[in-house]
């Protein structure tokens, strides 16, 4: 009996504060905007009955999302930014993880801590720290102008490039850790065996190291890609008005336009898009667990 209670409290909590709210989002996404409080119709009322209520729901908002090119452009641009920055994070994170796995045993704990440490500092502050660096009169431009590399300040802040930098910077630990875990387990004699059988260093890396760290790479990519897709803080601080990302669109739709039904519809579509990488990620994790057992 007590065991049931143990499970019941968190179960009910999540039902009430996760599932029900999401059902509400779904419902509102099928409602119409209204000049009222709350600003949507229909309102559910017992007197009118369920069927009347249901008959008033429609897919109008979703149709709207396809007609106004702001939305599908924002989705595409989010996907493109998430994909590009995931790739960049991989390209920068892999050599770091590789060097960590190759470092002397006694360094590794410290290196690990140095990678994890930024996790504990405020995300907002980490993003903010780049504003001073990338702005037109920022430290990077000062340095490059001072060195005579450029004669005109570069415009980086409020462009996609700044968003890429921000994403790589904040999400790189998610990439490094799983790749490091995979490389750390890699038996060095496998590399030696490949060299012994005629591989050059580079060839042994491609034929042995990369395939054997594949699971780490995949996990790292998903861990960066999934949260980036709905990212809000980075595009709004570093991306400027020109950078479209769906998280930002949803925020503006809700707070600035107060169009709750459309904001809800945007959210529902975003969840639908996210389901694909999440399921793939789950499968990868499961396969990896099975391979380990």
């Amino acid at each position: 009996m007590k065991r049931v209670v143990v499970a019941l409290i968190p179960y009910l909590w999540l039902l009430g504060l996760f599932l029900v709210p999401f059902a509400i989002v779904l419902k509102i996404s099928l409602s119409d905007v209204a000049m009222a409080r709350p600003p949507y119709l229909p309102q559910f009322s017992w007197s009118e009955g369920i069927s009347t209520f249901l008959s008033q729901l429609d897919f109008e908002n979703f149709t709207f999302l396809t007609t106004d090119d702001l939305y599908w452009k924002a989705y595409l641009s989010s996907l493109q930014i998430a994909a590009t920055s995931t790739l960049l994070t991989l390209l920068i994170g892999y050599p770091i993880a590789y060097a960590m796995a190759r470092a002397p045993e006694q360094w590794r704990a410290i290196l690990m801590m140095l990678v994890i440490l930024p996790f504990w500092t405020s995300f907002l502050i980490r993003v903010y720290s780049w504003m001073g660096i990338l702005s037109q009169e920022g430290y990077l431009n000062q340095l490059l102008l001072g060195l005579g590399v450029i004669s005109e300040p570069l415009i980086i802040l409020n462009t996609k490039i700044a968003v890429y930098i921000g994403i790589v910077y904040t999400y790189i630990p998610f990439m490094i850790l799983p790749i490091y875990a995979a490389l750390h387990r890699l038996d060095n004699s496998l590399i030696e065996a490949a060299e012994d059988l005629g591989c050059s260093r580079a060839k042994a890396f491609w034929l042995v190291t990369v395939p054997l760290s594949r699971n780490g790479i995949i996990a790292g990519c998903f861990l960066v890609f999934i949260p980036t897709l709905g990212e809000f803080v980075i595009p709004s601080l570093l991306g400027g008005s020109g950078t479209l990302m769906i998280g930002k669109v949803l925020w503006e739709e809700f707070f600035n336009n107060r169009d709750w039904p459309v904001a809800s519809a945007v959210a529902v579509v975003l969840v639908l898009i996210l389901i694909i990488p999440i399921v793939l990620f789950q499968q990868n994790q499961q396969k990896q667990q099975e391979a380990e057992n």
Binding site: S189, L190, E192, D196, V208, R214
Partner: peptide, 20 residues
Amino acid sequence: VPPNKRAVNMMFQSYALFPH
């Protein structure tokens, strides 16, 4: 001569078979 250019091959103690 680097290991990959030697007419010498080695059987490793751990066998070092490529798991993939």
